[in-house]
Each structure stands twice: as structure tokens, then as C-alpha cells.
Design a binder for these strands. Structure first.
Lengths: 194, 194
DNA sequence: GTGATTTCTTAAGCTAGTTTAATAAATCAG
DNA sequence: CTGATTTATTAAACTAGCTTAAGAAATCAC
């Protein structure tokens, strides 16, 4: 019996036979990356869908003025990747970088499709995964359009205490859509208030 | 042979037998709403998943200060709804309102689950639907954190010319996360520039 | 068609958040 | 351990976007 975090995760949503578990592991590749290593370059084709076993990944977008905007942090037991590039074969618009030594499972599109086709359970799993992710993306949009910088920061710090410690502040600022200088100022103000 | 926009839409992603089409129509309820009618109230349980056949729906969130924030507009051939409420049985955090006379197909959670269980094709369809929606939500987040108000507005106007005409400006402002006064000012500035 | 209500515009004053720049602190490479 | 590089802090000047308020235009109900 193969035990693994990813299987625990899958089993939260669907039930899997031994055969299906075996097939899943045949479909993915285990990779390890050192801190600061870039996993997915902007412009890359065939970008994979990635399950983070352990570590931390950061996904960011580089605009025309060469500014970097952090789109997502990924931690243990999260899936990440450029979904559009993965699904539609287009070049990745994001860069994905390891923020700590990280171990991942990489799933290629072909394997993903076979997985979904052959075993109904996986299709169901990914449906639920996307559906949940959609709910949290919607919540983030609400925060984006209705929260002040302070509220955004406090919510982030409360929801992701581990990231708050692990990630350099300037990236957190970028994720929140504010400047690092202003975040620094906010933190000072909040610390005084206590 | 039943022909319908919703079937066209489903068939863009998966192939369906006559039996599956029949079963789909047994699973949904056709409803019509006059302009300004509220379809889903905040706090409502069992909120449905909604396919818009014709018309326009607006989804908004009401905060503690009683401000309304527009989360989404939905037009012909779009699915909409409070996904969290629909999937997890929680009270809806959104209000959904008709912005024009609108005809929809309503899908209840129970029917949704039966649909997915009995016919693999529907599970696949919703997986792709959520996946595509996720991609556009991510793009919206990029715009939120990296665009100026002017860039946000221009992108919206370019991508949704029909909505731009149909929807009162104050709701568009809300959707973009800016005040109606500022949008008005922007539009004047842009009109002069031409 | 008319009065009532909602939406849009305009403008002045304001503030949350940015920009720039310089210094301090922390981390990294060898 | 040391110099080099990256990250964080601080502060002053600035600006994009907000608030308030009042009038104009459009839409709605009857």
C-alpha cells in the first residue's frame, strides 16, 4: 500500500482503488528543486500542473514595464501551475520559482488527460479542486476591490502565518497589490498600536 | 432532437448522447425573471447553479458598511451562481439580480451531483468549465493588482462592449473597484482625448 | 405627460498609497 | 569572517483615486 500526502489529498474528495493509486504515480514525475530555482519560465510551452509535496513555490507575472506581480504562493499539499498554459498548450505567462527547497509531483497534460479519461475518480477530483479554487479566487477578488491595504495585509497574515514568516516582505506586498515601502509603514503602525 | 444554446455550449467541450441531453433537461428548471428581480438573496440556502439562456444577471456582495460590491456580470450562455453556497450548502454571501429580462436554467445541487455521477460527460464538462473560469479569475486578479483605474476600465470596455451599454455606470465602477464619480471623470478625459 | 426617483456629472478638498532616495539591516558567496 | 548583494526602513514630496455635495440628465411609475 502506497501512502503519500498526495493520496491523502485525493482521498479527501474521491475514493481510489489500489490500481488507481498505482496509475496516478505512473502519471507523475517526482522532482526536487533548491531554493531560488525557477521551475517554469515565462514563455515556456507544455508547462506542467504541479503538486507541492513539501516546500514553497511562488508564481509571478512580469508586465511590459518589467514589474513583477506575485499571483500566488503555494505551500505543502497545494496544486499550482499556469492552468491556461497547461490546458490550452499556450506559452506560460507566469514564472514559477522555489522560495524554499521544494519537492513536487509534476503532471504533464497528456498524463492528466489519460488520468481523467481512464479513471472517472480523477476527473471528479480535479473538478472539485478547480471548483474550490474558484471559490477562493472569488474571495480574493472581493478583498482586492473592497479592502484597504491594512485589511488586506491583516487578512493575509491571519490566513497564512507560515508564509508571512517564510516569504520576503516585498513579495507579500506585491501579492497584496501594494508597495513594499507602504507595507513596511503599515507594519510599523500596527506594531505600535499593540 | 432537442436543440438549445445550453446544449451547444455543453457540446463545445464534451460529446453527448440523446439520452444524456434528455437527462440534462430533466435535471434543470427553466425560469424567467423580469428586470430588477432578485433571483438569489444573500443568506439563502440551497442557492442554485444558473445557466443564463438570455438576458443579464449581476452578482454582488454587501459588506458590513452596507456597501455593495459587484463581483460578476453574467450574460447569455454563461453559468453563474454562488459556487460556495451551491457546493457546500452554506448560505449565499451574494445577491444575484436580473439587469434585464432574463431566462435561465436552474440546477439544484442534488441534480448536479446525479448528473455528474450518472454521466461521466457532465463531470468532464463542469471540470472544464471551472478550469476555464479559474483562468479568467486569475487574469482578473492580475488586472486588479497591476492596472490603473483607466487601464481597468479600458480593458472592461474592450472585452464587454455589450455590458458597457446595458449596465448603469455605477455598477461597472463597482465591478472595477473604483467610485462612480471617478469613472465619470475618466470617461470624460478619455472622450476629450480622441 | 408629469412628478418622483435614480443615475450621471462636475468640482473642490482630502487621504491612502506611491515615488524617490538615502540609510540600515539582513543574507549570501567564497 | 568579510565584502557584496539583497531586503527592509524611514521620510518627504507627490498623485491617483476618494469624499462630499450640489446640480443636470435620464429613467420610472402611474
Amino acid at each position: 500500500m502506497v501512502l503519500d500526502d498526495v493520496i491523502d489529498n485525493l482521498r479527501q474528495y474521491v475514493s481510489l482503488s489500489q490500481e488507481e493509486i498505482k496509475y496516478f504515480f505512473e502519471s507523475v514525475t517526482v522532482c526536487r528543486f533548491r531554493k531560488n530555482k525557477v521551475l517554469v519560465e515565462r514563455g515556456q510551452l507544455n508547462s506542467p500542473f504541479i503538486f507541492i509535496r513539501k516546500g514553497c513555490l511562488m508564481t509571478f507575472f512580469t508586465d511590459e514595464k518589467d514589474f513583477k506581480h506575485v499571483i500566488q504562493f503555494g505551500m505543502d499539499k497545494w496544486w499550482t501551475g499556469d492552468l491556461n498554459s497547461f490546458m490550452n498548450g499556450e506559452p506560460s505567462i507566469y514564472t514559477i520559482k522555489a522560495m524554499a527547497d521544494t519537492e513536487v509531483l509534476m503532471l504533464e497534460k497528456k498524463s492528466f488527460e489519460q488520468l481523467c479519461q481512464r479513471h472517472h475518480a480523477f476527473e471528479g477530483y480535479f473538478r472539485v479542486l478547480f471548483q474550490n479554487s474558484l471559490v477562493s479566487h472569488q474571495k480574493r477578488i472581493i478583498r482586492n476591490i473592497s479592502f484597504t491595504a491594512e485589511e488586506k495585509y491583516l487578512t493575509f497574515a491571519k490566513n497564512h502565518p507560515k508564509l508571512e514568516l517564510l516569504i520576503p516582505q516585498k513579495y507579500i506586498a506585491s501579492y497584496l497589490g501594494i508597495t513594499p515601502e507602504f507595507l513596511s509603514m503599515l507594519r510599523r503602525k500596527l506594531a505600535k498600536r499593540k
